[in-house]
């Protein structure tokens, strides 16, 4: 593989009581690649993302960031290491403007978050970086709109803009196209195909067309187990995948 491994899991497990949500998963995520993760409902995709961003602690196994184990660090430290995530359900500051949403993200890098007296609007550079993040996802014109008043698709874009505003290295995206119409999905697909040239992206998505189009690497998971990882064509032709998706019948998406 010509691209560096940024994020890695080694024998990652997560048990909820007796339920194995994730069982012995070892994956590597590379720089400048989009790594798609698919699988039927309950396959452990979201659990995996929640662990990669530090939201859940693994029951056993390790998460490595650039070769360094980060399983035991605090959730907020994941973001500081450049691991940014978006959520399955839209998770934004809905009463604030789009710009303000991104400014919160930018401010962490600019510092001064313990400054009691300096106005939050006083620094032009902060505004500019936040605006750039919005423009990158195509929300430039929505800059001063209240986040709850833009369309659902735009809110999903805003969420990605917020992650971009933290200057991440890794983007963990949990179903960014969920609940979107065809045209809106196409916007996100275009966006992601641009972004994957610069970032290491881990994408969990139910939209098969999108994921086949975007993925450089594709992992299929079933019941918390790793089934197969490979290029899109390899995975598509794998008999085990056909069985997992088609054999069971009831879980077909």
């Amino acid at each position: 593989m010509e691209n560096n491994v940024i994020l890695e899991t080694e024998g990652l497990c997560k048990y909820w009581g007796g339920l194995k949500a994730l069982d012995d998963l070892s994956l590597a995520f590379h720089d400048n690649q989009l790594h798609g993760i698919v699988g039927p409902n309950g396959a452990g995709k979201s659990t995996l993302l929640n662990m990669l961003c530090g939201h859940y602690k693994p029951t056993s196994g390790k998460i490595l960031h650039r070769g360094e184990s980060i399983s035991s660090i605090k959730p907020y430290e994941f973001a500081r290491r450049g691991i940014g995530r978006s959520f399955q359900k839209t998770n934004i500051y809905s009463n604030s403007t789009c710009l303000e949403n991104c400014s919160v993200a930018v401010q962490r890098l600019m510092g001064g978050s313990f400054n009691f007296f300096r106005s939050r609007y006083s620094q032009k550079m902060l505004d500019e970086i936040a605006t750039q993040a919005l423009e990158k996802v195509g929300l430039g014109q929505r800059r001063d709109h209240i986040a709850s008043q833009i369309s659902y698709g735009e809110q999903r874009q805003l969420e990605i803009a917020m992650v971009l505003a933290t200057s991440p290295e890794v983007l963990l995206l949990d179903e960014p196209m969920a609940g979107m119409g065809h045209e809106e999905s196409q916007l996100i697909i275009d966006l992601l195909s641009r972004l994957k040239k610069e970032y290491c992206i881990v994408l969990v998505e139910h939209d098969m067309d999108a994921i086949f189009e975007l993925s450089d690497q594709l992992t299929v998971m079933v019941d918390g187990q790793h089934l197969v990882t490979g290029s899109v064509d390899e995975v598509r032709d794998d008999p085990r995948v056909k069985e997992a998706y088609l054999g069971q019948g009831d879980e077909v998406y």
Binding site: Y76, V104, F117, M162
Partner: peptide, 22 residues
């Protein structure tokens, strides 16, 4: 202030604020 921005953000959506690295 800048601090106030964080106060607002944490009040409105603590989970998101953690995910942004605070």
């Amino acid at each position: 202030s800048r601090f106030g921005r964080l106060v607002d953000a944490i009040h409105e959506n603590p989970g998101r604020t953690v995910a942004l690295g605070y």
